[in-house]
């Protein structure tokens, strides 16, 4: 990606389209966080592409003054892969939701993560179908009453991070929908990461699933219930910064600093770059505290790098530069 000489502000990334999400929707927060993150990346505006599928989240590209495509349900990862392979210099973003990514588009989602193209995926997880007006989604909780589960949902949910890391995601971050500063920072780090980055935003839907994440994200409880991990730093949380995580056998355990002789040195230090995802998976699954921040960021070879390397190898060993060389090669014969 070429660096921009022009200096941008968030306004440069705002399109002239009126934003049409419901009042109070976290989607507004995400949009602004993105518009603030992009100027920090030093990427030219014309090199940025947003590809979305279908759903409330997928209106997002219309509001960004970049190149964009509002495509069809679930297919954004496939389309974005084509964009990136056609022009690896572009900064490519997939905007998707829990249904778009993990129900109708589940196959493309896992295969993009497996291949590790340098694409960033922002997953708006609101644990409900919004645009179709209130059916349960693949992240809805068991028992959740929705229009299509009037007696309570009986389908166990996916944990997006768990599914993604199972599909070999090299980068997974989670962030609350009401913490714009952290969100902007995570977007910046995700964009800088070489490889597929997945950012799960816990996005509140005020209409069909209001308060789904309140027990973690409400201002009053956030500090006590969320652990925002940072690479190289001990896993501390709590309003008083007195709680921490240790590994007890094969389980994470919450400890209180100062109790039973526990000190900061005893706590786990976050290593996002571990190749072995075991600990990352535990962090993803943890319900207390709910872990946010960049949980996994394991640097690996990207698909584009592998493809470019193969192409160079083939080119070096080939006698063909023009298609005529191929057409007239091998077993040809003359008719006079």
């Amino acid at each position: 990606m070429e660096t921009a000489e022009r200096k941008y502000t968030f306004k440069d990334f705002s399109s002239d389209q009126e934003v049409r999400w419901c009042p109070g929707c976290d989607d507004y927060v995400i949009l602004r966080a993105m518009q603030k993150a992009l100027p920090e990346l030093g990427v030219k505006k014309e090199d940025v592409v947003f590809i979305s599928g279908i759903g409330c989240s997928s209106r997002f590209p219309y509001y960004m003054d970049t190149y964009g495509m509002h495509s069809i349900h679930g297919r954004a990862p496939a389309i974005a892969s084509g964009v990136k392979l056609a022009n690896p210099d572009l900064s490519v973003w997939v905007i998707t939701g829990d249904g778009d990514a993990m129900a109708i588009g589940g196959n493309h989602f896992i295969h993009l993560l497996r291949r590790n193209l340098d694409i960033n995926i922002v997953l708006f997880n609101n644990e409900i179908y919004g645009l179709t007006k209130g059916q349960f989604s693949p992240t809805s909780t068991v028992g959740q009453k929705t229009k299509s589960s009037p007696y309570g949902n009986i389908q166990p949910p996916f944990q997006p991070g768990e599914l993604a890391i199972g599909a070999q995601a090299r980068f997974f971050a989670r962030v609350g929908g009401n913490t714009p500063k952290e969100m902007t920072e995570v977007f910046i780090q995700a964009a800088k990461f070489k490889g597929t980055s997945l950012i799960e935003v816990l996005q509140n839907c005020p209409i069909f699933n209001n308060g789904a994440f309140a027990k973690y994200t409400d201002k009053a409880v956030r500090a006590d219930k969320q652990l925002f991990v940072e690479h190289g730093k001990p896993m501390i949380f709590g309003k008083e910064r007195d709680k921490g995580l240790v590994l007890n056998g094969l389980k994470l355990e919450v400890v209180t600093l100062g109790e039973n002789g526990v000190s900061e040195e005893d706590l786990l230090v976050h290593d996002a770059e571990l190749e072995d995802p075991t600990l990352h998976q535990m962090l993803v699954r943890s319900e207390y505290p709910l872990v946010t921040g960049i949980i996994r960021g394991f640097p690996d070879v990207t698909f584009e790098e592998r493809a470019a390397h193969k192409k160079e190898q083939v080119k070096k060993d080939s006698n063909f530069t023009k298609t005529d060389d191929l057409f007239f090669s091998g077993e040809t014969y003359e008719v006079h």
Partner: peptide, 19 residues
């Protein structure tokens, strides 16, 4: 690609990007 839909999906993306 992972399936027929991704086959055409990736082609649409590549076309959007100029291939």
């Amino acid at each position: 690609a992972e399936d027929e839909i991704a086959g055409i999906g990736s082609a649409i993306g590549a076309s959007f990007a100029g291939d």
